[in-house]
């Protein structure tokens, strides 16, 4: 047994080193630069100033931050609502078609994200395909592109597979005889779902929510291409510091703040999830 542990440890080392080199070191640089200044060529110069952070903690940045949190929450909620039936259907009723549906869900990922977002742009434009169709059947125009709805739509579209996959995996291991047992105990379909199926799929829901919520919090491409004047997200503010403003240190400070926000969300969710699982286990034991 101990020998196996040693082998696994040895196998783990290269991966851990790669992570350390390519993830932690850049992360450390971001933190270091966030306290630095830039020289005349825009290169970060090491130093200690909190100016960058004071530029981040300005009231005018707040709307973008709130909007980002709101968009992320909305996207996550919509994704759960859309993904759960899909995953459930695939596992329970689709039979052999289940995996085919899952492949179909993942297939668009073979195409670059930005290309797909651009396709949405073409679809949603005021003079785009959808509006032309609506106009042809006499329904008038809908102005979507440039609104918050367009951005949330794009985010849901982009991150939905990340919700479906963990739910599919979790439900795949669920023993559906438990549902029958619930019904045998005179549980209504709604009660069986609420007390049996839903608690059992909690790990999938939590995992999916994290996989969707966290990257959406840092997303900037969707808002850039589908958004308008009032859809700027925190990611857009960070990106512009690097590509156009020439203020990498401010961008770094903003990124650090966002990362702290992400980690806090992660910690909170895991804390809640553990308590939830523990509660479920207790409830299960009591039952």
């Amino acid at each position: 047994m101990e020998r196996f542990t040693r082998i696994w440890n040895a196998l783990l080392t290269p991966g851990a080193l790669v992570l350390l080199g390519l993830f932690l070191v850049p992360l450390a640089l971001v933190v270091v630069f966030s306290f630095g200044t830039v020289d005349i060529l825009g290169r970060p110069v090491l130093g200690f100033t909190t100016d960058n952070y004071s530029q981040v903690f300005q009231s005018y940045n707040l709307p973008a931050v709130w909007r980002t949190v709101l968009f992320s929450l909305a996207t996550t909620a919509i994704c759960v609502a859309l993904a759960y039936p899909v995953a459930y259907y695939c596992v329970r009723f689709a039979g052999r078609l289940g995996p085919v549906i899952i492949v179909a869900v993942v297939a668009p990922w073979l195409v670059d994200y930005l290309v797909r977002i651009y396709a949405w742009r073409t679809l949603l434009s005021d003079g785009g395909i959808i509006n032309n169709l609506l106009g042809d059947v006499g329904l008038g125009q809908v102005h979507v592109l440039g609104t918050s709805w367009a951005v949330i739509l794009g985010l849901v579209y982009g991150y939905l597979p990340l919700m479906i996959l963990p739910l599919y995996a979790t439900l795949g291991t669920f023993d559906f005889r438990l549902v029958e047992a619930g019904k045998d105990l005179y549980g209504t379909p709604r009660a069986v779902f609420a007390h049996v199926t839903l608690p059992a799929s909690r790990p999938g829901i939590v995992g999916g929510c994290l996989l969707v919520f966290l990257p959406v919090l840092g997303d900037f491409a969707t808002a850039q291409f589908l958004g308008g004047p009032n859809t700027t997200m925190a990611g857009n503010l960070i990106a512009s510091q690097f590509t156009e403003a020439g203020a990498q240190t401010v961008g770094a400070a903003f990124a650090v703040v966002l990362i702290v926000l992400l980690v806090a969300t992660l910690a909170l969710t895991f804390g809640l999830a553990r308590r939830g699982l523990a509660a479920a286990a207790t409830a299960g034991a009591a039952a």
Binding site: Y118, A221, F225, G251
Partner: peptide, 23 residues
């Protein structure tokens, strides 16, 4: 072009890496 528009967006992600190299 649209192509450059797309690329510019992702260049943002690379910006930090370039900055790191600079230092």
């Amino acid at each position: 072009t649209r192509r450059t528009a797309l690329k510019t967006t992702f260049a943002a992600g690379l910006g930090l890496a370039a900055g790191g190299l600079a230092a």
